[in-house]
C-alpha cells in the first residue's frame, strides 16, 4: 500500500463535508463534569509536594532586619563584646578623664571643658543674625 497522502485525497465536496463534521465535533467536544473536575482538583492538592495556604503564595522577600540583627549577621556575637567594652571605657573617660586627656583638651581648645562655640568653629554665628 502506498504511503503517498495524495493517493487518498478526497474530492473537494467530500472534503468540505468532512471538515464541516469535524467543525461541529470540535464545537460539541465532550466536557468534564463539575464532579469530575472537583475529583481531579482534590487529587492534585493531595499530590502537591508541599502546600502553602491558599492566597498566601507570594514570592519570598527579604525579611526586615534591625541594626542589632544586621550587626549580628555581619560580625557575629563576638563583635558585640568588643563594642560593649569600648562603650564602658568611653563612659569612664567621660566621667573621670585622666590627666593626659585633660591637658590634651586644654592644649587644643584652651579649656578642659569646651563650650559649644569653640567646638563648632566652622559655624558662622553671623548667619543667625537678622
Amino acid at each position: 500500500m502506498s504511503n503517498d497522502p495524495k493517493e487518498f485525497e478526497l474530492d473537494a465536496d467530500l472534503d468540505a463535508e468532512l471538515e464541516a463534521l469535524f467543525a461541529e465535533a470540535r464545537k460539541n467536544a465532550p466536557v468534564p463534569s463539575e464532579d469530575f473536575l472537583a475529583r481531579i482538583e482534590a487529587q492534585s492538592l493531595a499530590e502537591q509536594p508541599m502546600q502553602v495556604e491558599a492566597g498566601s503564595f507570594t514570592p519570598p522577600v527579604a525579611e526586615k532586619r534591625g541594626w542589632f540583627d544586621w550587626h549580628l549577621g555581619f560580625a557575629g556575637w563576638s563583635s558585640l563584646g568588643g563594642l560593649t567594652a569600648a562603650l564602658v571605657v568611653g563612659f569612664g573617660i567621660g566621667i573621670s578623664p585622666p590627666d593626659a586627656v585633660t591637658s590634651l583638651t586644654s592644649d587644643f581648645l584652651g579649656s578642659s571643658t569646651p563650650n559649644l562655640e569653640d567646638v563648632l568653629w566652622t559655624f558662622d554665628s553671623s548667619l543667625l543674625e537678622g
Binding site: L37, Q48, Q51, V52, F57
Partner: peptide, 17 residues
C-alpha cells in the same frame, strides 16, 4: 511544585478537559 494551590486549580481546569 512549589506548593501554590491556585496553580493546582488552574492546571486542573486548563488541562483536564
Amino acid at each position: 511544585a512549589e506548593g501554590a494551590p491556585e496553580a493546582a486549580r488552574l492546571l486542573t481546569r486548563r488541562l483536564t478537559p
